[in-house]
């Protein structure tokens, strides 16, 4: 039996040190989660880059709009009142 089944693709997320969140590092192929995790360890942390790993089947990721732009993200640009710098505070007021 050799029907050339390609192993599925997995996305790898690495926590570089405690206190930081997992960050996308890249992807790899593996037949299952167990091997994906081991392959990720060997490939993405061999220089001590991480203390924790997540692997996620690439097919399980749902992405936002195809071109990564409008209309998902543009509407957030005109709401400056969400940011603290929007507000003017009299000089001398502290702890605000």
């Amino acid at each position: 039996m050799s029907e050339q089944t390609e192993w599925p693709l997995w996305e790898v997320f690495v926590r570089s040190r405690r206190g930081l969140s997992h960050t996308h590092a890249g992807s790899l192929h593996a037949p299952d989660a167990e091997l994906a995790l081991r392959n990720a360890r060997d490939l993405y942390t061999r220089r001590g880059e991480g203390v924790s790993l997540w692997v996620v089947p690439s097919a399980a990721i749902t992405a936002s709009s195809p071109d990564e732009k409008d209309p998902f993200f543009a509407p957030a640009a005109d709401k400056p009142y969400r940011h603290p710098t929007f507000y003017e505070i009299p000089e001398g007021v502290k702890h605000l």
Binding site: S58, A63, D67
Partner: peptide, 9 residues
């Protein structure tokens, strides 16, 4: 996959 490109809308 969702992350790969290919045919965009």
């Amino acid at each position: 996959t969702a992350v790969a490109g290919g045919t965009s809308a």
